[in-house]
Design a protein around this nucleic acid. Structure first.
Lengths: 245, 245
DNA sequence: CGTCGAGTTGACATAATTCAAGTAAGGTGG
DNA sequence: CCACCTTACTTGAATTATGTCAACTCGACG
């Protein structure tokens, strides 16, 4: 065990104390391995579990009555996932592994100690969840007010930046992994139309595609064409309580 | 001063202690009055302020480069608004009053005491913000995967349920207040098309319109047609810390 | 070698937008 | 109190973006 990837992720924003690290590590005592495509949790399941994603990519999504699917969010290592049942008894979204993945499940009761003993970590969780909320509002504006081409472009840029955030060696190229159908379910489009938009972006010289990987050739132009705004500003930690102990 | 409407709202989920109520009331010491249409805060403004909405309706929204607007969320009394700068230094959304309104501004530093001294209230804030996140994912699915008619229907139902939550005497009729352009900006449609969809819903006998008010005639059918899921389940407070003091 | 899932492309259908013209209601200054 | 403005709402016709259906290619895999 290499230590808590959750603590590592949160440590980007804050110098955690030993005690704080230990408290976070306690959330990752158990591990569960998932194969590509395997479902971790289904919408409406009652469960006390929340997860820290340790390795691999996952996605959260819902199905509508007509059988269509909306992908709500892609998840990368260090993400806290399944957080809808922090608020509710029953899960609001399904969770499935996009690649082989490892998650650390913990019961939400474990958050109690965190809020009681480590108010600064609680504040950090709260701030991170607000940042996630902002990310969702960006997606909302993308789906509500931009063209198909812009939505696909914004998704690609979001993936690039989030991968970069994890691995500083990644510059402008990454393995796509998602099928065009999944991209469609994330952007509210059909797989066929996603295909056309990717071709369009490629013909315009903004991206290149080879095998399963994408290169963002002209990041500035793509961001412009996609109404994409990079939210990777620093978190504002100025209001946080002092560390305990 | 009639006491904290924030505490009143949060008290729906939990029996707050006197000390907890007092701590929340401290967030509402100042008041600011807004006229219909008045902007409280602009996107990208740097500000340490967060607000509790005390009276009236407000909305949060963003503008895109092409001048189009996406309304992110409607806000009702008791809502915590402007929460994007809990995470960031600069505001991610603009805030404007839809009706005459009263807000109580407070500096985010005030949250520090709350997290330090009242972990149970902090947990409640966190849970409520997760519920808001789920509400955003519902909107995402609505915009991404449902028809214009369904989006308008879902917005009407959401408004109905949120108004009911505040005022138990409201049954199935309310004053719309929003213009069709605003409905369009919330649902990702043009004002013209909103108009047609409202007519369609009326012709199908699901709603009635008179002057500025809407009556939901057949709530079940409308919910069905709009892929609407009512999230007003109880919050799960089982994991919260014990009250302090 | 055959099958299967994913990607690609064309022809056609449909939902939503755009443009344009008009009506209704409320507010304001003379 | 009226005449005028302005803003919101309404409706039709033409246009465009996206979806649907269908056929085909390609590579992976058993």
């Amino acid at each position: 065990m290499t230590g808590s990837c959750f603590a590592e992720r949160l440590g980007h924003f804050l110098d955690l104390t030993e005690k704080e690290r230990a408290a976070l590590a306690r959330l990752e005592e158990r591990e569960r391995t998932l194969k590509r495509g395997q479902m971790l949790r289904r919408e409406n399941d009652g469960s006390d579990e929340i997860y820290v994603l340790r390795h691999g990519w996952m996605m959260s999504y819902v199905y509508l009555d007509d059988g269509s699917r909306q992908i709500l969010r892609l998840h990368f290592p260090g993400d806290l996932i399944g957080s809808s049942n922090i608020a509710y008894r029953d899960a609001a979204e399904s969770l499935t592994a996009i690649t082989d993945a490892v998650v650390c499940p913990f019961e939400k009761q474990a958050l109690r100690t965190l809020f009681d003993d480590h108010p600064r970590v609680a504040a950090l969780l709260f701030a991170v969840s607000q940042a996630e909320r902002v990310s969702l509002t960006d997606r909302l504006a993308s789906l509500g007010r931009t063209s198909a081409r812009a939505r696909v472009g914004a998704l690609l840029l979001d993936m690039l930046h989030r991968i970069r955030f994890m691995r500083k060696d990644v510059t402008n190229s990454f393995e796509l992994i998602l099928t065009q159908e999944e991209i469609g379910d994330a952007t509210g489009l059909t797989a066929v139309h996603v295909n056309r938009m990717m071709r369009a972006l490629a013909e315009e010289g903004m991206i290149e595609r080879r095998n399963g990987s994408v290169t963002i050739v002209d990041e500035r132009a793509l961001a412009q064409a996609s109404a994409y705004f990079n939210r990777f500003a620093e978190l504002d930690t100025s209001w946080f309580p002092a560390p305990r102990g």
